[in-house]
């Protein structure tokens, strides 16, 4: 199985580490031999049709910051050119999320399909903005398109709903899909600290990003809700259809008030027919949605299985890469069946 990796940041490096770690296991269990034939970052790419040395690639990136410095195999080609010209089975797209126009990830994904590759992405931007378009390319070029890592990191949700719960109609999905805001609210509640103080601390710890806008405004959760609505519930919506309220107005006093009434406050994303909403909600203290710290949780209401709840880690490079690996294995199994 030949893999092209586009994006060599935290997640990209996580994917390479996971492939390295699981190489023998995958050979033994599935008979699958993964060869990473190209790795691209903003500087260019390293290309080797026989498979790159993954330790060397990680070392080059760590020491020089640019993959095009890979000895002997580094090039400064544009990413789209690499996708078009290098032969591969699967394109893994893990460039940074852009919720404005989904680029350049959207172009990379489309180029992947056009050049006959199956595509895996962890990128919310193109999925939240151009879901139908991307699906139509996958269909047109008869390629597989998977994106489990885009929602909830390691927490299984998309493939759970579509495959494990196959046959069930998913009526409603409700949950905490952003670990940063959950961390902030948990800390505010426990330590009676105000929003700004906790945010600053979370930034120092690397839990919140330097620009935390997408997280605290609810935009990140909204993107995930849209992906779930389109992929699991067959809706045709974009991020512009979501009613969004963030958490920056929540005070420790409001959390104490909620506690007195037997509730906590969580940033909840919710999707059902006629409702596409992200905002702070009162959640009963004994409700399974009341998970702490940076955990993610989702409750799926289905017609047959009724309520199904999943909890997991929504971030982290190895955790997210585990979802990407599950997509790689799935594509391998689907395509090797003949």
């Amino acid at each position: 199985m030949k893999v092209i990796l586009v994006g060599f940041g935290v997640i990209g490096r996580g994917v390479i580490k996971v492939i390295k770690k699981k190489r023998e296991y995958l050979k033994k269990k599935y008979g699958m031999d993964i060869k990473v034939v190209a790795i691209c970052d903003s500087s260019g790419a390293a290309i080797d049709e026989r498979g790159l040395d993954l330790d060397l690639a990680l070392e080059v990136k760590r020491k020089k910051g640019r993959i095009c410095e890979y000895p002997g195999k580094g090039v400064t080609l544009p990413v789209t050119e690499v996708i078009r010209s290098v032969e591969g089975d699967v394109l893994i797209e893990v460039t940074p999320t852009n919720l404005e126009d989904g680029e350049p990830a959207r172009t990379y994904i489309i180029e992947g399909f056009k050049s006959g590759k199956h595509v895996i992405t962890a990128n919310k931007g193109p999925l939240a903005l151009y879901f139908q378009e991307l699906m139509s390319y996958a269909k047109k070029y008869k390629r597989i398109f998977r994106y489990e890592a885009s929602v909830g990191g390691a927490m299984p949700i998309i493939n759970l709903a579509r495959e494990t719960l196959a046959g069930n109609e998913i009526i409603e999905i409700k949950g905490i899909l952003n670990g940063t805001t959950n961390y902030i609210l948990t800390k505010m509640e426990r330590e009676k600290l105000d929003f700004d103080t906790v945010l600053k601390e979370a930034q120092e710890l690397g839990i919140a990003e330097t620009n935390p806008y997408q997280d605290i405004s609810g935009l990140d959760t909204a993107a995930k809700i849209v992906i779930l609505a389109n992929s699991i519930m067959n809706m045709n919506v974009t991020i512009r259809d979501v009613k969004i309220e963030g958490i920056s107005r929540i005070t420790p006093e409001a959390l104490t008030m909620a506690n007195k009434g037997g509730y906590t406050i969580k940033l909840i994303g919710e999707v059902k027919r006629n409702k596409l909403e992200v905002g702070p909600k009162l959640i009963p203290l004994d409700d399974p949605l009341n998970v702490k710290g940076s955990l993610n949780v989702a409750k799926l209401y289905t017609d047959l299985a009724k309520e199904v709840i999943v909890v997991g880690r929504g971030a982290g490079s190895i955790e997210t890469s585990s979802a990407i690996l599950s997509d790689i294995i799935n594509i391998y199994l689907q395509t090797s069946r003949g």
Binding site: R249, T251, A254
Partner: peptide, 8 residues
Amino acid sequence: DIDVVVIG
């Protein structure tokens, strides 16, 4: 029976 917390 619904509960609401109002901030403002």
